[in-house]
Design a protein around this nucleic acid. Structure first.
Length: 647
DNA sequence: GCCAACGTTGGC
DNA sequence: GCCAACGTTGGC
């Protein structure tokens, strides 16, 4: 490093160069050493200060641009190929219009720029200050491409792609080439067997011409949760144009596990299984290169990144949501920005537990047999190899006060995890969350397949069995509260729930079911009381109910109708256009409290007189009396009703 | 991109 | 504990 400093003839008075010298990696020093004759012009102090003191280097202000342009006249542009902090190595000193525009974009937003500055300053505390290299240094004669060609490798030391090594070529005419495409345009030879990264030609089957290391993913191989935000974020972020491996990120995520206690990053069961490794690999590090230790030296290996969140180095090209900083798979999985709290919504194998470490299929379990019977079908992981303490991942709408749970934390003591997640004191685990967690942790055959995306998909679909009458019904009743809420029925889309009539009789949450189901209407078609349990069922009819059925109560209880229909939602819904505007809540409660309806209160419950002449208390009484009779007739017992009338 | 609807949470 | 509200997902 000192040697390199000497070679670069860096003035000792330049603090940046001093600092940089101490952190320069071999990746840089090597080519420089190989080309010691390269003369490194001195950099003016003014420029140096500008470049070192501000995290925004490209056109931060008009003055800045002018200064830099002025500098260009007196000396070569500073590191035209190496990223300046936020830029990546593809930047050619702002020659790339796209990059220019992007840089300008970031600068136009003061708030963004401000936060960026803070972030960069913080990041600089972790990462060594980048060392500026001269554009003319580091070039190595590269006769493989012909006489006069030069090659250079540069390791990115900043920006979101920090740690990545870029290869550049320079033609005898001075054309700088940074990609195969550009090379092809400059060098009119057959580059079929030329590997840009290594700069070598391969013949025959020596090596694939270009290893993309990408999996041609089916749409369903990536959950929309990830794809959506990946796409969204990627589309939003300035550096999205050089997003590296977006489509494979979710899978790659599964390929790493971070033990927070040991700090060891290791490949997970996914890779251990050997199934995905063939098709999913990290894009930059070679497969033969061992994964770095937790203390892997920053920048000393290809694609070693330092997680901006936890500070752990890792291989790959993981970035946080904004792609602004490196983000290790574990932190990435959390999909939380800065907050150390995460919320799990999608299960991924931890890679640490017994199940994940088991690499041998038992051949006896249902999943193994399933695979043997129908190998073409979706593979299910052997039950013996199934992760017993999966990590839940995916972004949450809101950050919750949940401790940062790592794979190792859960693997070390999965029971504690269970206890932890079941802690009723935990805000995120109260009420529905506890149920959801227990629901998801309770893994059945399909819950932890080899494809966690499918798992998630199934979880989301588990509210529908697809077989019951309700699931097979494709038509909304148009009258239940959920239908009325729908925009197509003129609703405000606040409830956003499926028609009650179409709520799965087996798996829908019970509070979404038609109330009759709670007392056995669908009992013959599926397990009773399936889904999420609630103490009682409430069906609200608020002011968006504009009318009332001719039967006055909204309950069509005529005896000459099919009884099933009478107990279908449409029987208790109101019909638009006929009537007094009111709403009511009817709670079905303890069966032992039947016949507790105080009919005399019905019309006056809100202290209001019966303002609807043709609907008297007596009518209500009759209506509900008939209703109760019918329910009693069908079910043998009667729940009590609490009816609230909101006029 | 639209839309149905799943799943979650704050307010009550 | 309930539920209105709505962010988000997933199908099309």
């Amino acid at each position: 490093m000192n040697e390199e400093s000497a070679q670069n003839q860096v003035p000792a008075s330049e603090p940046v160069e001093k600092d940089e010298g101490e952190t320069t990696t071999e990746n840089i020093s090597k080519p420089e050493a190989e080309n010691p004759s390269v003369e490194v012009p001195a950099v003016t102090d003014a420029t140096e200060q500008n470049l070192s003191s501000s995290p925004v280097f490209v056109g931060e202000t008009g003055t800045r641009v002018k200064e830099e342009n002025k500098t260009v006249e007196t000396e070569p542009p500073v590191d035209w190929f190496e990223p300046l902090e936020d830029d990546d190595a593809h930047s050619f000193g702002g020659n790339d219009p796209e990059e220019e525009s992007l840089a300008g974009e970031s600068e136009r937003s003061e708030s963004v720029a401000g936060s960026e500055k803070i972030r960069k300053k913080m990041f600089q505390l972790q990462a060594p200050r980048r060392r500026r290299t001269h554009p003319d240094e580091g070039w190595v004669e590269w006769p493989a491409l012909g006489e006069g060609w030069k090659r250079k490798e540069v390791v990115r030391r900043s920006g979101s792609s920090i740690g990545q090594k870029d290869v550049y070529y320079m033609s005898p005419r001075g054309d700088r080439v940074r990609s195969r495409v550009e090379l092809a345009s400059v060098l009119p030879i057959d580059l079929t067997h030329f590997e840009f990264k290594t700069g070598k030609f391969f013949e025959g089957e020596g090596q694939p011409i270009r290893i993309r290391n990408r999996v041609k993913k089916k749409p369903r191989e990536r959950s929309s949760s990830e794809s959506s935000w990946l796409d969204r974020e990627g589309a939003d972020t300035p550096d999205s144009f050089h997003r590296l491996t977006p489509s494979t990120m979710p899978k790659q995520q599964n390929s790493f596990l971070l033990n927070s206690s040991t700090g060891i990053l290791k490949q997970s069961s996914r890779t251990d299984f050997g199934r995905t490794e063939d098709k999913i690999r990290l894009p930059f590090p070679t497969s033969s290169r061992p994964l770095p230790s937790i203390k892997g030296e920053f920048g000393s290996e290809d694609s070693i990144l330092v997680c901006a969140k936890c500070g752990i180095s890792f291989t790959g090209t993981w970035y946080d949501k904004q792609r602004k900083r490196p983000c290790c798979p574990t932190c990435w999985a959390s999909k939380t920005k800065e907050h150390p709290m995460i919320r799990f919504r999608k299960w991924i194998p931890c890679g640490q537990c017994v199940g994940c470490h088991n690499t041998i299929n038992c051949g006896q379990c249902a999943n193994c047999k399933h695979g043997l019977q129908s190998p073409e079908s979706r593979k299910r992981i052997c039950r013996k190899r199934r992760c017993i303490c999966p990590i839940r991942k995916s972004p949450a709408r809101r950050t919750v006060q949940q401790p940062y749970i790592t794979a190792s934390d859960m693997c070390d003591d999965s029971s504690s995890f269970q206890n932890e997640v079941g802690d009723s004191q935990h805000p995120s685990l109260k009420s529905s969350d506890t149920e959801n967690l227990s629901m998801n942790v309770d893994i059945d055959d399909d819950d932890m397949s080899t494809d966690d995306d499918e798992d998630w998909h199934r979880k989301r679909k588990r509210r529908s069995c697809g077989e019951c009458k309700a699931c097979l019904c494709r038509k909304d009743c148009g009258t239940c509260d959920f239908c009325i809420d729908k925009p197509k029925f003129g609703g405000s889309n606040k409830k956003r729930q499926k028609c009650r009539l179409r709520q799965c009789q087996r798996q829908a949450m019970r509070h979404l079911l038609p109330y009759q189901m709670g007392i056995g209407e669908y009992g013959s078609d599926g397990p009773l009381l399936a889904g999420r349990s609630r103490p009682h069922y409430t069906y609200s009819r608020k002011s968006n109910f504009n009318s009332y059925k001719g039967s006055q109560s909204g309950f069509d209880l005529s005896d000459n109708e099919d009884e099933d229909n009478n107990l279908q939602p449409k029987s208790w819904t109101v019909e638009p256009g006929k009537a007094p505007r009111h709403s009511f809540d009817m709670n079905i409660r303890n069966p032992q409290l039947s016949m507790q309806i105080n009919f005399s209160d019905l019309g006056l419950q809100n202290g209001l007189p019966d303002r609807v002449p043709h609907i008297s208390n007596h009518n209500y009484a009759q209506t509900f009396s008939r209703l109760i009779k019918r329910i009693k007739k069908r079910c043998g017992f009667v729940y009590s009703f609490t009816v609230k009338l909101n006029w």
